[in-house]
């Protein structure tokens, strides 16, 4: 495990506080109201947003706010070993976690009596899939014209041996000691999601949080630039 970090460099050549390669595409589907793809290294997520639409069945409708439905799905070919398709407890848990994050970002009370459907698929999994899913969903919701507080961003940090690292990937995730994904709202400096596997000292935890926030701010800037580029290039084409 110690061999994973040599002279301050990780197995994939990154520094300890460096993110993986980021890539994002917007408007990948014509049918959806808003859609986006987000790639962090080997982890690739696509998100589709439909709505606001009518609530069916009617009894689920809320007169003062919209309801949000999030489906996170890891596709069978996304992992190294083929994954069984269909319902899994992991998918259900992550769907509900992402739902809570997005609920505190969108102004649901602005669009009462409606429903917003967010479908997220993981095409390729290489650690921190929930982070990529949140980043993709955030872009898709923005292009779908939802009223939002800010672009929500997410990234993970971890510990391998004594080293604290940003954006865990590959073996660092499976063989590392600690994995800590967060979702962060830069405008309010608010943490919307915090999960952790493993054991950490208090001071290490605080250092990791700072590292995560730093990564999230970089991703936020990247998301913003992607959106602005999309609109500018789109106009040049037409």
């Amino acid at each position: 495990m110690e061999g994973m970090i040599k002279e301050g460099k990780r197995t994939d050549g990154r520094n300890l506080d460096e993110l993986r390669n980021l890539e994002a595409k917007i408007g990948i589907s014509k049918e959806a109201t808003g859609s986006a793809m987000f790639r962090m290294g080997g982890t690739k997520a696509i998100a589709y947003v439909y709505g606001p639409m009518e609530v069916i069945p009617k009894f689920l409708e809320q007169s003062e706010r919209a309801i949000l439905d999030v489906n996170y799905n890891m596709l069978p070919f996304s992992t190294e070993e083929r994954k069984r398709s269909g319902f899994s407890r992991r998918n259900a848990e992550i769907s509900s976690v992402i739902k809570r994050v997005l609920e505190s970002v969108i102004f649901l009370e602005d669009i009462p009596k409606t429903k917003i459907l967010v479908n997220i698929d993981i095409l390729n999994a290489d650690a921190s899939t929930r982070c990529a899913a949140i980043n993709a969903a955030s872009l898709a919701l923005t292009t779908a014209g939802m009223p939002m507080n800010d672009l929500v961003t997410s990234c993970a940090a971890g510990r391998v041996g004594e080293n604290l690292i940003l954006d865990v990937a590959g073996k660092e995730d499976t063989e590392g000691d600690v994995d800590l994904p967060i979702a962060y709202l830069p405008v309010k400096d608010e943490i919307l999601l915090l999960q952790m596997d493993g054991i950490l000292k208090n001071e290490d935890f605080e250092k990791l949080m700072e590292l995560c926030k730093k990564g999230c701010k970089q991703i936020h800037e990247f998301q913003r630039n992607t959106l602005l580029d999309y609109k500018n290039n789109f106009n040049n084409k037409s």
Binding site: T142, P147, M148, N149, D150, L151, P186, V187, Q223, R224, L227, L228, K231, N232
Partner: peptide, 15 residues
């Protein structure tokens, strides 16, 4: 803010 010509594009959360 991003300026191009006379219009300014903003994203959610822009001050």
């Amino acid at each position: 803010e991003e300026k191009k010509g006379e219009y300014v594009i903003v994203t959610p959360g822009t001050l």
